[in-house]
Amino acid sequence: MEIVGPLVAAILTLMVFSYILGDNVLFKLAAHIFVGVAVGYAIVVIWYQVFAPKFTTGDFIGTAPALFLCFLLVFKIRPVQNSLTSALGNVSLAFVLGVGAALAIGGALLGTLLPQILATANISLNPNHYQNTQNEAGLVEWLNNIIIVLGTVGTFFYFTFAVRANGVLGGLREGFVRFWAGMGRLMVIFTLGALFANTVSSRVALLVSRLQFLAELPGKLLGG
């Protein structure tokens, strides 16, 4: 297996890489094998890690309602529009979405919104609060913080307050929003640039790692 395994892996790797020569039979073959194996493997893991313990360890009673909800979900495999069974399956979905929505609300509010607002609000823009604005480091820190505050508020405005307002104060509000959104737009462009670069870096790492596997293969096969 020490030799056959890596060889199989290498062949499959090359089959996928063959896509750069154009779509072909080998690639399609690899793609379908991949989907099949991935699904099969996930089924095995989920069964052994999630469901089997529920039946074997006497935990059955406590999770019976959950298993019932799972059973209802079966009706969604081949949903018949507007049938009763489909409606029952929807109850399961509703359950999951209800829990998910609650967790998402709590997380977004207590985990992101409040802490992030506080973090921004805690930044002082008063130069006197910086120990050594005379030297370069303090000055830079102060300037950076100004950028962070302006940028955060601006980006938030850019994405959030875009609805046009009417009335006497509407024009005033619009000018205000426009100023901040302009700032935010610039910041978003910087951010997207950096995000793009980091995404490239991530993807390149995946390629490099596969090439590394291929490059080290001969040594492995011959040496081991």
Binding site: G106, G107, G111, T112
Partner: peptide
């Protein structure tokens, strides 16, 4: 990562 951050915060 955000799940971890947010849920642990709560």
């Amino acid at each position: 990562a955000r799940w971890w951050i947010e849920q642990l915060e709560m």
